[in-house]
Computed example of a mutant assay.
Amino acid sequence: MKFLDHVRGEVRILGWLLFIIPVAIMLAFALLAMMMFVGHVNRDFTAAMLIAGLEACGPLTLGLLMATMAIQDPALELQLTLPVRYRVTMFLRFFLIVVWTMLVECLATLLLHAILPWVLPKDLLASQLTWLAPTIWFGASGTILALLLRNRATCGAVLGFLWLIELAFHGYFAAQAWTQPWFLFATLYTPTANFWLTNRLELLATALLLFIVSWWYLGHSEWRFYGEDNS
């Protein structure tokens, strides 16, 4: 019961807006898809747009949310006096928003499989990797970048720049062996490539490493006082 009370308290601290944003993103793409159907837009283009929502927009949203949580804590001094270690509290918050975003994207994938199965280029199980790998990667990257840069605006700019570069030069990222392991949009552009599964697993492994680094960094809680972004 104490743990559940703790979780409810952290949800209130984070605010419901952070949990509404991922749902709003998926609903916006669903509405856009309905408008495209009404307008008799090319089916392949519609499918690509929906995959982009799962693989590109949802993950970037999580990265920005994680950056906000990692750098903004108005009660930091109070947190450091509590018996629960600071990094445990932070990772509980990370866990809540990551799991919530994963549930939203998983539900969206299941609905696509049930209603518009032609949208997904992979079977249902493999399709979960479409969103899972880039989502976890962006979440981990947003966390560590915010902690290191100590500025959520700069972190958001870095994530957004990488996001745009990979979208604009997707052909290069897909064709070069050294960029394939961190090509974030392999399902959108190269779903039949022989490196697709390896790419998904490498993104997940990289994200795990970044979360481990973040856990280590937050173990040195005094570092959070230097250059703290209070904006």
Rank of each mutant, 00 (worst) to 15 (best):
4 L>P: 02
6 H>M: 06
8 R>P: 00
10 E>Y: 03
13 I>Y: 15
15 G>K: 06
15 G>L: 08
17 L>E: 15
18 L>S: 02
19 F>K: 00
20 I>E: 02
26 M>K: 07
33 A>Q: 12
36 M>D: 10
41 V>F: 07
43 R>P: 14
45 F>R: 15
49 M>R: 08
53 G>R: 01
57 C>W: 15
59 P>L: 12
61 T>K: 03
67 A>F: 01
68 T>E: 09
75 A>F: 09
76 L>R: 04
76 L>I: 03
77 E>Y: 08
79 Q>C: 13
81 T>G: 11
82 L>P: 08
82 L>T: 11
83 P>F: 04
83 P>Y: 04
84 V>E: 10
87 R>W: 14
91 F>W: 03
96 L>V: 02
98 V>I: 14
101 T>Y: 08
101 T>G: 05
101 T>N: 10
106 C>K: 13
111 L>C: 14
112 L>Q: 04
114 A>D: 06
122 K>S: 07
125 L>Y: 13
125 L>W: 13
127 S>M: 05
127 S>P: 04
131 W>P: 02
137 W>H: 06
138 F>E: 01
140 A>G: 10
143 T>Y: 01
144 I>G: 01
146 A>Q: 03
146 A>H: 00
147 L>E: 05
150 R>S: 15
157 A>W: 05
159 L>T: 00
162 L>G: 13
167 L>T: 01
167 L>F: 08
168 A>G: 12
169 F>G: 07
170 H>W: 14
178 W>K: 09
180 Q>P: 14
180 Q>K: 07
185 F>V: 08
185 F>R: 13
186 A>R: 06
187 T>A: 15
193 A>L: 10
193 A>K: 06
196 W>R: 11
206 T>D: 07
210 L>D: 02
210 L>H: 06
216 W>K: 11
217 Y>M: 06
222 E>S: 09
223 W>M: 14
223 W>R: 08
227 G>T: 09
227 G>K: 02
228 E>G: 12
